[in-house]
Each structure stands twice: as C-alpha cells, then as structure tokens.
C-alpha cells in the first residue's frame, strides 16, 4: 500500500462518481420542488448520446457538453409541462418519459456504436472540467438551497405549495424550472459518461446509473453535500469491481456486476428511515413518498382544491 496506489485509487473513485453525482444533483433539484422524477436514466442517456454525437460532428467536446445540456433540458420540458400544468401522474409520466428517451437514444445512437470521438481534455491529474463542475455544483446547490431567496422559495414550494402560493411564490413556475434545470444537470452527467468515463456510445450505456441516482437522492436526504458522500461510496464500488476483475478471482464477474444494484438496495434499507413514531404513516403512505423528503413530493398542486 504505497502513496501511488492510494492516489490512483482515489482518482478512479472520483472519476467513477462524477456522472452519478451530477445525476443525483439534478434529481435533487427537481425533487426539491415536490415533483417525483423517474426519468433520470433516460435523460442521462439522451445527454450521453447528444454529447457524443455533437462532439463527433463539431470536434469540440465543450460544445458537445453544452448541447447535451440543452437536449436534456428540452426532454425535461416534457416532464415539467405534463406534471406541473397538465397534472399528470408524476410516477407514470417519469416512467413514460424514461422509456421514450431510452428509445430515442437507442434509435439515433445505432449508427454511432463503436465509433470514437474527442474526449474531454484533462485539466489536472486525469480530471476533466466536469469533475470540478460536479463538485462545485454540489456545494453551490447546497448554498442556493440554504442561503438564497430562490432556493428557500423552492424548498417552500416542495414542502407546501399552498403556503408558498399564499406568500406570493408561484409554485407552478418553481416546479417547472426546477424540472428543467435539474434535467440539464442530469444531462451533464450523461455527457461525462460518453465523453470521459467510458468514451463512446453503447446502447443503454448508463447501465442503471440514473436509477442508482434516484436511490442516492433518498440516501442523501435531498441534501447535495451528503450526495457527494453517497456518490463516492458508489465510486468505491466501481473501483472494487474494476480492481477484482483486473487481479482475477474465482468469483464470477456477474456477481461483481451485481454489486452496485445490491448495494443500492442495502443503502435504501438503511437510509429510508421512517421517522420514529410514524409507522402508521409509513403504512398509509403508498407510493414512493417518504417522511424525510419534501413533504409535498409526488402530489399535485391545484389552486382550486381545498
């Protein structure tokens, strides 16, 4: 165990966790407003494909990243409009959009399987710009949520849209924009996958990262700083997978591939804390809302309803 080993290990862990961190942050932003978002995985795929294709066409990975943000923002526009203005079921809308996005990405990505493009340039010690952006964004979002008017309003909308509305905060606007900005950040995560972590395009290349991000949102109690911790944990698992595969063991690869998913379930079991004394609440709460998240998560806001 020497210094070099520790350095490379931490580098791998950090690189592995970037896309997950960005996806988790995006999901936190959109869920803070009180809208359940299950389209993370599909949005990531669209971000990954767009980033790859645009980089290939223009030759500049930075333009690729920007366009990926726009594309995933446009995709989230569908989710935002349907859930806030059309009052559609948030879970079904998220799932539908997820499949839709998955189909779109696989459809347009078919011709790009196995191609290569520019990668994001390394700035410092194997780290590209998105590494820094992701960690900065986590701190920045935390600051926004706790110290700015916009952030506090957003949290208020997520907790109780009616009270927020009475105070002159427009819940529709906040929910709408939280979806779109969240989606754009999720798209950044996708871009990091296809331009840096596993360069190239493969069908379904997120391999469920978007869903792990949704679990991490719960793990982190909707707190961006804790999200860093959670994603590093999963980065560590990716490293273990990688490490054991290179040194070779008797354990079949399938079991290492299962690790992140098993770990997600374990994390969910330990951190889906039902608040003490509210076991009855847990029994009544059918649907993915839980006691620790934004109180109005998953519920529509209709002005006329009392």
């Amino acid at each position: 165990m020497n210094l070099e080993f520790i350095l490379t290990t931490s580098q791998i862990i950090i690189l592995a966790s970037v896309s997950l961190l960005l996806a988790t942050l995006g999901a936190i932003i959109s869920e803070k407003s009180g809208v359940t978002n299950l389209s993370i995985d599909g949005t990531m795929l669209v971000g990954a494909l767009t980033a790859f294709v645009i980089t290939k066409v223009t030759g500049s990975p930075y333009i690729g990243v920007l366009v990926a943000m726009i594309a995933s923002g446009l995709l989230s526009l569908i989710h935002a409009t349907l859930t806030t203005y059309f009052l559609s079921n948030q879970i079904v809308t998220g799932l539908a959009l997820n499949f839709f996005a998955m189909g779109l990405a696989n459809f347009f990505g078919k011709n790009y399987v196995g191609e290569v493009s520019e990668k994001l340039p390394v700035l410092f010690a194997n780290f590209d710009i998105l590494v820094f952006i992701s960690f900065f964004l986590a701190i920045f979002t935390y600051f926004i949520f706790n110290n700015t008017k916009i952030g506090l309003n957003l949290v208020a909308v997520g907790e109780d849209p009616r009270v927020a509305d009475n105070q002159g905060v427009n819940p529709f606007k906040y929910r709408f924009w939280a979806q779109i900005i969240g989606g754009m950040i999720v798209g950044l995560g996708g871009a990091h996958l296809s331009l840096s972590y596993t360069p190239g395009w493969v069908d379904g290349m997120t391999s469920g990262r978007g869903w792990i991000a949704i679990a991490l949102v719960i793990f982190s109690f909707w707190n961006p700083m804790r999200a860093i911790l959670g994603t590093l944990l999963f980065g560590g698992i990716s490293f273990l997978q990688f490490h054991f595969q290179t040194i070779g063991t008797n354990i079949p690869a399938a079991f290492f591939n299962m690790l992140p998913y098993l770990m997600t379930i374990l994390v969910m079991i330990f951190f889906s804390g039902v608040k003490s004394g509210s076991l009855m609440g847990a029994k009544i709460n059918i649907g993915p809302s839980s006691d620790i998240g934004p109180s109005s998560l998953g519920r529509h806001y209709i002005r006329e309803d009392r």
Binding site: L38, I91, G208, W211, I214, A215, I218, M258, Y261, L262, T264, I265, M268, I269, S272, G273, V274, A282, K283, N285, P288, S290, D291
Partner: peptide
C-alpha cells in the same frame, strides 16, 4: 412495509440482479 423503502428503486434494482 417495514422500512418505508421506495419500491420503485428496489423493484428496478431487482431486475438487474
């Protein structure tokens, strides 16, 4: 039932497993 765990994530992870 026992931990209030989000069933969407668990059932999806079980797919992969």
């Amino acid at each position: 039932i026992f931990r209030g765990v989000n069933e969407v994530v668990v059932s999806l992870m079980l797919n992969y497993i």
